[in-house]
Design a protein around this nucleic acid. Structure first.
Length: 577
DNA sequence: GCCGTTTTCGGCCCGACTGTTTTCAGTCG
């Protein structure tokens, strides 16, 4: 069992204990334990084996969870979990996914009406058998019926780039309201998560009615979920939820901090405040003995400063190490910043499936402040994209040589290729040609349904080839539309370390591959990371910030990112093979 | 179940809104 499996088991324990009405703090302990395990840089099995290491030294893992981890590693299952599974009707978990239906109500409904499936629940509502139960009435019955439809039709989360577009629409729609003094978007969108479950809008305004009325006529509005004094929630587009909160100006920082989250970060912040004699809510911070007098909250900086902390960038707020970093900023890691990026090492031109020429891509890269780029068109196996064979590749590289010779300044284009790893294992381009490239990316595009062993061996085999420098989008996932292919990433990491190769963090918001957790593991293993846009057009180069955001969320240090290296360092690193 | 700058027991972040009641529990973020 790997760390992800163990984390899943604890997560499921938490869900099931919650359904059984177990102590909420015990439930939370399992959730935090799951998160702690998922964040570990080393495999749990290895930590348990090592007499010099102690699993309970990691925050959130005590003696009980450490022992259960051992059981999971050694036996592959957990008796308590198996028992809970058999005691819990599967429909309960499904029911709690209906908006407005929580654990308590779901349990009552399931028991009283012997619900076995969501279809049973729908029938019970239609036959008005719900409204006669104590604590239920006609409105709840309707809420469940509506919720069933939403649960079935809702596209749960949207990608960050889709969220960007929705935020833009909302901003433009709301900005015309003159009474709005401040407008900010918070939540997981502000934290830059790869997918976003809802949009949180924070507004400072005296005139709540005008603001809410304006949101109520947003084009794309489907329904208003709630509307109170300070809070309004709506559904837009494909049932996607948007929350609005209106706060007074002196509370803006506290509210922004609170609604940006994450939940874990807020719990950590508020616990710290409590220990220091303060209490924090979305209106500000106050002394515990004078809870009505706010002493901070106009800005986020003020709030963090009160707790002896430097301001924390939203993308770090996941309840990991960010409070320690903010406490002693000098000892915090030098996390990658978008301004550190000097190159982009994966992009396409009209030679394969790109929209712009070498000259156009180079000019656009220079405009974006890049010092060097690699042109990496597809190899011939990707026939759909007019992939290049050996002859066309050599011709393209000759053209790149001529281009570089004409460059007045320092800007350089590296001769590269995105070479397919064929289904049977070998590379799509002959070794003697690859040997003439500056930069060789190996990618899996075909045969993604192969077995774990086959795909892993293809990738490890590519890493073994002395001409290959990096594996692109190492798991092949497309967020929300295609799961990662079966690959033993631990084996890939091991091979990357052994052959001194790099791995890609593909910046396309549809890929963001490696994912945050995998990125942390790759970096813990010391593998250099290249953050690349995989641009197929000039606009595609702008995706760089998505990749950097993802790397920041994973806490990747500047020095480990190839794109921060000067060309000389990159070239000397490439000599390794 | 975890954890310790009043601690190895007794806490554990905090508030808005709704529905069902008649003062509050449940849900959500």
């Amino acid at each position: 069992m790997n760390n992800v499996d163990i984390a899943h088991a604890f997560e499921e324990m938490a869900d099931l204990l919650e359904l059984h009405g177990e102590n909420a703090f015990r439930v939370r302990a399992y959730r935090q334990g799951a998160k702690a395990i998922a964040d570990l840089a080393l495999p749990v099995a290895e930590i348990l084996r090592d007499p010099n290491q102690d699993l309970t030294s990691f925050p959130g893992i005590g003696s009980t969870l450490a022992e259960k981890s051992r059981t999971l590693v050694e036996t592959g299952s957990l008796p308590q979990l198996e028992k809970l599974r058999t005691e819990t009707p599967p429909v309960l978990m499904q029911m709690t996914r209906i908006p407005g239906l929580g654990v308590k109500k779901a349990v009552v409904l399931q028991k009283e009406l012997s619900i076995q499936s969501l279809e049973d629940l729908r029938l019970a509502c239609q036959e008005q058998r719900v409204r006669v139960l104590k604590g239920f009435a006609a409105k709840t019955e309707q809420l469940i019926l509506d919720g069933l439809a939403i649960a079935e039709s809702a596209s749960q989360r949207i990608r960050l780039d889709q969220a960007d577009r929705l935020v833009q629409r909302l901003r433009e729609h709301l900005e015309v309201v003159e009474e709005i003094e401040r407008l900010e978007f918070a939540g997981s969108y502000r934290r830059g998560k790869e997918t976003v479950g809802d949009i949180d809008i924070l507004v400072v305004s005296e005139n709540h009615t005008t603001v809410m009325d304006r949101l109520g006529c947003f084009p794309g509005l489907q329904s208003v979920i709630v509307r109170g004094e300070t809070k309004m929630s709506i559904r837009v587009d494909d049932q996607f939820q948007v929350d609005l909160r209106i706060v007074p100006g002196q509370s803006f920082g506290a509210a922004l901090q609170y609604f940006t989250g994450s939940k874990d970060h807020n719990v950590a912040v508020r616990s710290r405040a409590r220990k220091m004699g303060f209490t924090i809510n979305e209106y500000g911070a106050a002394k515990l003995d004078k809870p009505d007098t706010y002493v901070a909250g106009r800005t986020e900086e003020e709030l963090y400063a009160l707790l002896g902390l430097q301001w924390i960038a939203p993308e770090f707020r996941e309840g990991r190490h960010e409070l320690q970093w903010a406490e002693m900023p000098n000892s915090a890691p030098q996390v990658i910043d978008v301004n550190d990026i000097v190159c982009d090492l994966h992009m396409h031109t009209t030679q394969s499936d790109g929209n712009h020429s070498l000259e156009q891509m180079a000019a656009a890269a220079q405009q974006r402040g890049l010092k060097h780029i690699a042109i990496t068109d597809h190899s011939k196996r990707v026939s759909m994209a007019r992939g290049l064979d050996e002859a066309r590749l050599l011709a393209q590289w000759a053209e790149i040589d001529r281009f570089n010779a004409q460059q007045p300044g320092e800007f350089r284009v590296l001769k590269g290729v995105e070479c397919d790893v064929l289904e049977a294992g070998p590379l799509d381009i002959a070794d003697e040609v690859l040997a003439q490239a500056d930069w060789v990316i190996a990618s899996v595009h075909y045969g993604q349904k192969q077995s774990r062993e086959q795909i892993t061996e293809r990738i490890v085999g590519a890493l073994r080839n002395p001409h290959v420098d990096i594996i692109a989008h190492p798991t092949g996932r497309l967020i929300g539309s295609r799961p990662p292919y079966e690959v033993d990433l631990a084996a890939v990491f091991e091979a990357a370390v052994e052959y001194k190769k790099a791995l890609e963090l593909n910046s396309s918001p549809m890929r963001l591959d490696l994912s945050e957790v995998n990125l942390m593991a790759a970096c813990a293993a010391g593998i250099p990371i290249a953050i690349n846009t995989d641009a197929h057009s000039i606009d595609g180069l702008d995706a760089m910030h998505y990749g950097v955001l993802q790397a920041r969320r994973a806490g990747i240090e500047k020095g480990q990112v190839i794109n921060t290296w000067p060309l000389s360092r990159l070239l000397s690193w490439l000599q390794h093979a």
